[in-house]
Design a binder for these strands. Structure first.
Length: 459
RNA sequence: GCGCCGGUGCCCGAGCGGCCCAAGGGAACGGCCUGCAAAGCCGUACAGUCGCGGGUUCAAAUCCCGCCCGGCGCUCCA
């Protein structure tokens, strides 16, 4: 049975499943107005791990993630560039998609609703709240009466009084609100901003209402999982939940939050300006995509993790072990996708992953299996097939791709050099053999001699 | 200030009451293999004990209390 930590109850509990055999997952997506950074990667990767594992376990996953394509940051950028909000959003969404889905091998959500496509549903939702008296409208917008919401601060385990203390001390008191804790559902039009019509005048939706309208609209009432970074638990998720409760709707059954990514001991974020963009990291080394995935897998998703060049380098070395095993198996004629499995390893992996997505232990099991596969391969033991196939399956269940073939390209020159070296070795002309190997090394090629002849790969 | 989460080997990082004289990865060292390498395997060292001090228990890295240090949230934020 799959169990996951639930932020609301503060405990690990069985994964909610509204419908047997299925999981509905809503993960808050990006606001698209700039380069995505490594924090975004951790967030998207965390829900990718979950989805892949659920699917590996045979569950049918419905994964939805929004794209916020209208907000202050987008408006400001459009203004600054003399562009339009929709053009800015489209441009940065494309950058996000390329980095996340193409380069990081993260599975695309089944649904990617854009906020601007759901304004009608949001207006309808707000009307319900105004009609039942939990929301009020004035010249500046529509607000939710937070004190009417049962268990408002439960997600962050704080009482209304405790939250009010924070709000009073830190936020400028807004005369338009009855209570400092109340928040905007609808923002009245400001000059020069894009607007949509509503019963309360032209304006645009507040941030939280988007996710409520989209998650409920796509996944339906009482969907299973709602996720995002811990920094969204308050106010974003708290307010989404409040809106649903105020409307009398059954919302997410299970809340999951991934921890932050630190750089030099501090949270990586836009506002601190200490972020590395995904593109920049990926450009540094061809293996960085898989290395980042491995580094992320080796730390539990709920634990703050530090990411720096040393961590990346260590992860890159780890990824090499996977490819090296695949090469060794292939040269020995052992298929990577044979039918046999090592049940002990499969069981260990399943147990670890079922327990709150224990990817660090899952990775440990994978490496353990690689070690055993290599040992079996070395002596030609017939358990090698099952061990190799198991290791590959576990790696790919976590989204770590194994390099199966030589990189594409014109390899005839390299093959010719390798053949010439083999010839020289056969003739015991080691001086010439080593000269050729140096030549290959200069080309970025590593040759390995195996009992079945030489194999090479790009280093 | 309030709330929450952490502090484990040289580095990253699991474990969260007995199976721990503490997983896995990286780095190091020795051996085997190799013409030499590479890759791999085997082994060794590194945690004299898991931030510090008390306590509970037959038993604690794991539970409780206090303290120190770090992070996150309370504000746009993954």
């Amino acid at each position: 049975m799959i169990r996951l930590f639930d932020t609301l109850t503060g405990a690990v509990r069985p994964l909610a499943q509204r419908d047997e055999g299925k999981v509905s997952l809503y993960a808050c997506g990006p606001t698209v107005y700039d380069h995505p950074h490594l924090g975004h990667a951790r967030q998207a990767m965390t829900y990718d791990f979950m989805r892949r594992y659920f699917e590996w376990r045979g569950l049918e996953v419905h994964h939805a993630a929004n794209v916020t394509d209208i907000d202050d940051n987008i408006i400001n950028r459009a203004k600054r560039e003399g562009s339009t909000e929709s053009a800015v959003a489209a441009e940065w969404k494309a950058v996000y998609d390329e980095a996340i889905f193409e380069r990081l091998n993260i599975l695309r959500p089944h649904d990617r609703p854009h906020a601007t496509e759901f304004v009608a549903q949001m207006v309808e939702f707000i009307e319900t709240l105004v009609d039942n008296g939990t929301a009020y409208a004035n010249e500046s917008g529509v607000y939710l009466r937070v004190h009417l919401v049962e268990g408002y601060g439960d997600l962050v385990h704080r009482s209304l009084e405790e939250l009010r203390e924070g709000a009073g001390a830190r936020v400028d008191v807004d005369d338009n609100k009855e209570d400092p804790l109340d928040f905007a559902l609808w923002k009245a039009a400001k000059p020069g901003e894009p607007v949509w019509p509503s019963p309360w005048g032209d304006g645009r939706p507040g941030w939280h209402i988007e996710c409520v309208a989209m998650s409920l609209g796509i996944l339906g009432d009482g969907f299973d999982l709602h996720g995002g970074g811990t920094d969204l638990a308050f106010p974003h998720h708290t307010n989404e939940r409040a809106e649903a409760i105020a409307a009398g709707r059954d919302f997410a059954q299970h809340w999951v939050h991934n921890a932050m990514l630190n750089i030099g001991g501090e949270k990586m974020s836009k506002s601190l300006g200490n972020y590395t963009t995904i593109g920049a990291l990926l450009d540094e080394h061809p293996d960085n995509g898989r290395a980042l995935r491995l580094a992320l897998l080796q730390t539990h998703y709920r634990k703050v993790m530090e990411l720096n060049p040393a961590v990346m380098e260590q992860a890159r070395e780890g990824v090499k072990r996977l490819d090296a095993m695949a090469r060794k198996a292939t040269s020995a004629g052992v298929p990577l996708d044979g039918p046999e499995r090592d049940t002990g390893a499969i069981t260990a992996f399943t147990t670890a992953m079922d327990d709150d997505l224990g990817t660090p232990e899952g990775v440990a099991t994978m490496f353990e299996t690689i070690r055993r596969a290599n040992a079996a391969l070395d002596v030609g033991d017939d358990t090698a097939g099952a061990l190799v196939a198991t290791a590959v399956e576990l790696a790919e269940a976590m989204g770590l791709e194994v390099q199966r073939t030589k990189p594409t390209g014109d390899d005839t020159d390299i093959d010719a050099l390798v053949v010439a070296r083999t010839q020289a070795r056969a003739e015991k002309d080691f001086v010439e053999a080593d000269r050729i190997r140096d030549e290959l090394t200069a080309l970025g090629i590593t040759v390995e001699d195996t009992p079945n002849g030489p194999i090479w790969h790009r280093s």
